[in-house]
């Protein structure tokens, strides 16, 4: 994920002088440049049309059909959608995903903000710490890390033994339907580096004089955080909440690997996309799976809309102050 974005404003070409000298040639050149531009974009456009837009349209159609990959799709209207609500496993997958999003996202953001606050102060070795805390974000999504996770949370492995020192013997989280989801939450929280970097950038933007003035007026550190830092970084916080929430809804890889491709035990890690995958690619219920995908899109859109609506209440943009 890119963390710094540089926008360069280019001066419009060709210049007015050139245009007045040879208007026809300029127009032609402009068209040519456009053509060159589209040609440069064409691999992306082709990819977008063939690999993204096309399949999306197809899946919208399949969502309203009975389609097992081999037959020709049979139109069944909204049956797939109504079937969903009667399906106990679908309900379970919604429950698991909601739990994961609601527990995991705030924890991750809290940790990211906490560490960002610590790292915002200048000290020796700052660059090293930042890199070290960011590193898990780079490797965390990989399959091999999920494998490592599976083994450190197993019976009698590192986590189990460490907890046993404190008198808690869990017998391993990976095989226990009541615990395994927290293993996934821990994996997500551990990758707090990306939102942390964004928080850090936000913290750097807060004007120093605000803190100085507040300190002069006798505001303690907590008061300064609550009344200055939080409002000043609220746009960044909003951005992080939005991004991480959407991201959490899409969890698949870690659930799939940590549960050894079963999304179990007892469907404890049956996250939404995992059930979608099982229906589509194991049970060949591609119509149902497509309907599920569009349902997820609707849900994420709804949550996003609510977040955008809520920002009026708590996000503070500097323009408002003027």
């Amino acid at each position: 994920m890119g963390t710094t974005v540089t926008l360069v404003k280019e001066s419009p070409l060709p210049t007015r002088k050139a245009r007045s000298a040879a208007p026809a040639a300029g127009k032609r050149r402009g068209r040519r440049e456009n053509l060159a531009g589209y040609l440069f974009m064409s691999p992306w456009i082709a990819g977008f049309l063939l690999l993204t837009a096309g399949p999306m349209v197809a899946s919208l159609y399949f969502a309203f059909t009975d389609y097992n990959l081999f037959n020709s799709p049979k139109w069944i209207g909204f049956d797939n959608f109504t079937k969903m609500f009667d399906d106990p496993r679908w309900q379970k997958s919604v429950e698991v995903t909601a739990k994961y999003v609601v527990i995991g996202t705030p924890l991750k953001l809290l940790l990211a903000l906490g560490v960002a606050l610590l790292l915002a102060q200048s000290r020796r070795g700052q660059a090293f710490y930042r890199a070290a805390f960011y590193a898990p974000s780079l490797i965390g999504a990989s399959v091999s890390i999920a494998f490592v996770w599976r083994s450190i949370f197993s019976d009698d492995a590192v986590v189990d033994r460490t907890m046993a020192l404190f008198g808690v013997h869990s017998g391993g989280w990976v095989g226990d339907p009541d615990w395994i989801l927290y293993c996934l939450v821990a994996l997500a929280v551990w990758q707090f580096g990306a939102p942390m970097v964004i928080f850090l950038a936000g913290l750097k933007q807060v004007p120093k004089e605000l803190y100085e003035a507040a300190a002069m007026d006798g505001a303690g550190p907590f008061r300064r955080f609550w009344s200055i830092t939080l409002p000043m970084i609220s746009p960044v916080l909003f951005f992080n909440v939005l991004l991480e929430t959407i991201h959490s809804f899409q969890i698949f890889g870690s659930a799939y690997v940590v549960s050894n491709a079963s999304c179990g035990p007892a469907d404890a890690t049956l996250v939404y996309t995992c059930y979608l995958y099982q229906q589509g690619f194991k049970n060949a219920q591609m119509g149902f799976a497509s309907a599920m995908a569009w349902m997820l899109l609707l849900a994420v859109a709804l949550v996003t809309a609510v977040l955008f609506w809520s920002q009026k209440k708590w996000v503070h943009y500097e323009e408002d102050a003027r």
Binding site: A25, R29, R32, E33, L35, A36, L39, A46
Partner: peptide, 26 residues
Amino acid sequence: MASGNIERRTILKAAGASAAALGLAA
């Protein structure tokens, strides 16, 4: 861009690059 001739080359290169990319995909 300094000279008017560049565009043709640009277009050709762009065409070549995209053809190569598509060919690779195939």
